[in-house]
């Protein structure tokens, strides 16, 4: 997909593990892994909001668009 999720970088910057984030945002570890590995097809605004709140970032910090990688 042309949209890349930069969750790994943000977790590293915030010194937080995926399971910690999972507990804080109330989303299962399995779902966050899907998001992290770029396998998610869509993302709810509520998920985006919770991640941005906990990782102190903007949606643009979490997602990026790269041309020419679309399915």
């Amino acid at each position: 997909m042309a949209i890349t999720v930069k969750l790994d970088d943000l977790l590293h910057d915030n010194r937080m593990t995926l399971s910690e984030l999972s507990e804080r945002v109330g989303i299962t570890l399995a779902n966050l892994s899907i998001l992290k590995t770029g396998k998610a097809k869509a993302m709810r605004f509520s998920t985006l909001e919770a991640i941005c709140r906990e990782l102190q970032c903007q949606p643009g910090d979490l997602l990026s668009y790269e041309d020419g990688e679309a399915d």
Partner: peptide, 8 residues
């Protein structure tokens, strides 16, 4: 259903 399953 497929779309929903891929939604996080």
């Amino acid at each position: 259903q497929d779309e929903l399953q891929g939604t996080v």
